[in-house]
């Protein structure tokens, strides 16, 4: 069994130049996802379509887009459901990030934030990766890996898809805002750390005009997150911690 759908796909050159919607008819298996449909556009209509994808099961976080106006990972959205919502199905790149071309956004700023949060949670499996050049018997000597790269591993549920960045209204105008993903990562890293100094440092990074206090409680990050990370709750918890610390310092 197959279904036929029309997709309205946002197309543009780098920087969002020449942005427009183009329609494509695709015929795919009736249990296809929206990502399958996007791949069908690429395979059957236009090999120049730029889009990101890898795992097809919501764990790599690379395919995030807007489907019918809402941020989703299209690899876990049934095309049939999307069609019931709106036909033709509209596919757009995430918002609040620079457009790199078609459905792909530049995530440099996003990862700068994630790195600043230190992301100290390391999964066992990732520990085994040859993170130091020495570990692999010198085979990759040309690659110099800086100290602390192990911290680069992802923290718990967050798949770093950028959906919360796209959903957050403050992110639309404030590039200095640390944003939901980084603030959630800061909260998670602090919970994980046993080092009091590091915990203080992480709380310091969350404080400030463009830290937790720039959040205006629209709750969109938490509502859109495909992995139940709940950045909004983490932001509120860190506010309380900051206030508690400030109060303790006053009292002493």
């Amino acid at each position: 069994m197959t279904i036929t759908a029309t997709l309205e796909v946002f197309r543009c050159a780098p920087g969002g130049v020449d942005g427009r919607f183009e329609s494509y008819d695709v015929t795919v298996h009736d249990n296809a996802t929206v990502l399958d449909a996007i791949e069908a556009v690429w395979a059957n209509h236009d090999r120049s379509l730029v889009f990101r994808h890898a795992c097809h099961h919501a764990s790599c976080g690379s395919c995030g887009v807007l489907v019918n106006g809402s941020e989703v990972l299209p690899c876990i959205v049934d095309l049939a459901d999307a069609l019931r919502q709106r036909s033709p199905v509209r596919v757009e790149p995430l918002r609040n990030l620079p457009l790199a071309g078609d459905l792909v956004v530049d995530v440099t700023g996003f990862f700068e934030r994630m790195l600043a949060s230190t992301m100290s949670i390391t999964r066992t499996a990732e520990d085994a990766l040859p993170l130091d050049a020495d570990d692999d018997g010198g085979r990759s000597q040309a690659v110099s890996v800086p100290d602390g790269l192990a911290r680069f591993n992802r923290f718990e549920n967050c798949v770093e898809c950028g959906i919360c960045i796209s959903a957050c209204p403050t992110m639309a105008t404030d590039e200095r805002f640390r944003g939901p993903a980084m603030l959630a990562a800061l909260g998670r890293a602090r919970a994980e750390s046993a080092d009091p100094q590091q915990r203080e440092h992480l709380l310091d990074l969350a404080d400030g005009e463009h830290g937790v206090w720039r959040c205006h409680s629209s709750w969109e990050c938490t509502q859109r997150c495909p992995q139940q990370v709940d950045p909004a709750e983490s932001i509120m918890e860190q506010r309380r911690e900051i206030l508690r610390r400030r109060f303790r310092r006053r009292v002493r």
Binding site: T108, E112, A116, G148, R178, L205, H210, R239
Partner: peptide, 20 residues
């Protein structure tokens, strides 16, 4: 990696605020 490890505006702490 080099870009990622460079100082960004997010690695520096801001002044604490009481405005909120």
């Amino acid at each position: 990696v080099e870009t990622a490890h460079a100082e960004s505006m997010y690695t520096r702490r801001e002044r604490p605020t009481t405005a909120w």
